[in-house]
């Protein structure tokens, strides 16, 4: 059996020693649209960042198709949260999309006509072909999100990690993005999406990862996205985990 696209083993993520995700064990299936669901502060973005090596692992390991991320970067596309960048930066929509190709180009080589064509076609795929020369500040929130999406497409990956691609976009854009993600999935790609809007989960995702400081459940949406699991994800605070995290941060057991 070939290695799964994402395999997380006993992963604990800690910022300044304080654990924010506890002991995650997870195997994700290939070729599915996967929702990462949980309340605010549950560690959804942290999960993605830890997989991509942007957050420190306190323990455990992550495998992408059976190998560490560092060796599999070329297989992975990433859409960060929209607020993480300065949209006043002097680049055009096309420039941003072209950044997706930089990883393949390697040091010093400049993007050429081929990369430009690829970026254009990615813009077309997200319905933004007319906006290539626009400075990114002049785009609406939904359009900015599509640009990020197009950049991930330009990475030409097998697995995509998307951090809240629906945040601050209008309904039409959300629908367009979902259609695009579904077509990616139908093309055999695996797509992880951080999402917090519960109503749409059943319609959007084949597989869900329910998260709240720890993994509550992961499995096909039909069997996993149940009222009981949701209650466990959203209901009540995990005082023990919070207390334990604080104890680790302080470094001393409160005797």
């Amino acid at each position: 059996m070939p290695a799964p696209p994402l395999e997380i083993h006993d992963m604990t993520v800690a910022y300044h020693r304080k654990p924010v995700l506890w002991d995650i064990d997870l195997v994700a299936p290939e070729g599915q649209l996967i929702g990462i669901i949980g309340p605010n502060g549950a560690g959804k973005s942290t999960l993605i960042k830890a997989v991509l090596g942007l957050a420190p692992l306190a323990s455990g390991q992550v495998r992408i198709y059976g190998l560490p991320y560092a060796q599999q970067r070329h297989l992975v596309g990433y859409v960060p949260q929209r607020e993480t960048v300065d949209w006043d930066f002097p680049v055009t929509a096309l420039d941003v999309v072209m950044m997706g190709t930089y990883g393949r180009l390697g040091w010093f080589r400049r993007p050429g006509a081929a990369e430009r064509r690829l970026a254009q076609s990615c813009l077309e795929k997200v319905g933004m072909q007319g906006y290539a020369p626009r400075q990114i500040q002049q785009l609406s929130g939904g359009q900015q999100q599509r640009i990020f999406l197009a950049r991930a497409l330009a990475q030409d990956a097998h697995i995509y990690f998307m951090d809240e691609p629906f945040a601050g976009v209008d309904a039409a854009t959300e629908q367009a993005i979902v259609t695009l993600l579904q077509s990616l999935r139908d093309g055999g790609k695996t797509v992880f999406v951080v999402h917090h809007e519960l109503q749409s989960v059943r319609n959007y995702f084949d597989f869900v990862i329910l998260l709240n400081l720890r993994l509550v459940a992961a499995g096909p949406t039909a069997t996993t996205f149940t009222r009981q699991n949701l209650q466990q994800t959203y209901g009540g605070r995990l005082t023990i985990l919070e207390e334990a995290a604080e104890a680790v941060r302080l470094g001393e057991p409160p005797r």
Binding site: D10, D23, A58, S59, A244, V248, G251, P253, P254, R255
Partner: peptide, 18 residues
């Protein structure tokens, strides 16, 4: 069979109250 390692780390930080 997965819990020994995490517990090995956590045991040092569990006070009486916790």
């Amino acid at each position: 069979d997965h819990v020994h390692t995490p517990a090995e780390r956590m045991e040092h930080f569990i006070g009486q109250r916790l």
